[in-house]
Design a protein around this nucleic acid. Structure first.
Length: 198
DNA sequence: GTTCTAGAAC
DNA sequence: GTTCTAGAAC
């Protein structure tokens, strides 16, 4: 007799097939509700710690509104995007964080549902940072600065996101240090090197 | 998004 | 032989 496997929670929801790659892609929706993970929240947004931080400090700012990704954002959301940036900026300059430099931005193509703004310190020192894809997702034009995104929405009413082939190439760009011209042989070499910038 | 691991690179 | 990367995961 075979053991019954518990169905994922969506069993009682509409059975239309989602194009999501799997349940993991919805993980942020749970994390947003987890008091342990929440750093702060207001009426519009929740700030959580990234579960696999790619630098000493790494937070995500997510809207409470059901916006799955940058692709679903339109000019009506401009004030929300500005608010998300403002919340991130405030956090980055509080007493705990003002000694560090931060960047704020979106991945051109995110893996996980619910729009999220990354707030990440620029040291890039973390045991969770392992792959070239990790590196390039924060240190190439795959990383779209929040200021640029807001500005483009304000000026043009839409944001032009790179096509998926372009994203793939950006993530496969040869490694280079984000603070100097050093070209590492491989990730462990780069991780050793960036310690010298601390 | 991560984990795991085969086989490429050294 | 060891280190490192890259692709499958039902």
């Amino acid at each position: 007799m075979s053991t019954k496997r518990a169905q994922p929670t969506a069993n009682n929801e509409k059975s239309k097939k989602q194009k999501t790659s799997g349940y993991w892609a919805l993980g942020l929706l749970d994390t947003m509700k987890d008091p342990e993970s929440i750093v702060m929240e207001d009426d519009l947004v929740v700030v959580i710690k990234d579960k696999y931080p790619k630098a000493e400090y790494h937070y995500l700012v997510l809207p409470k509104a059901d916006i799955s990704s940058l692709k679903k954002v339109n000019k009506e959301h401009l004030s929300l995007l500005q608010h998300m940036q403002h919340v991130a900026s405030d956090l980055s300059t509080d007493d705990e964080h003002k000694h560090k430099n931060f960047k704020m931005g979106y991945h051109a193509e995110a893996s996980m549902a619910r729009l999220h703004l990354h707030l990440i310190s620029d040291d890039m020192v973390s045991s969770c940072l392992k792959t070239k894809k990790h590196w390039n997702s924060y240190n190439s034009s795959f990383f779209l600065s929040s200021a640029d995104i807001c500005q483009q929405f304000e000026a043009e009413g839409v944001v032009k996101l790179p096509k998926s082939e372009v994203c793939r190439k950006l993530l496969d760009t040869p490694l280079k240090c984000h603070k100097c011209s050093f070209v590492p042989k491989h990730m462990p070499n780069l991780k050793d090197h960036i310690l010298s910038h601390k």
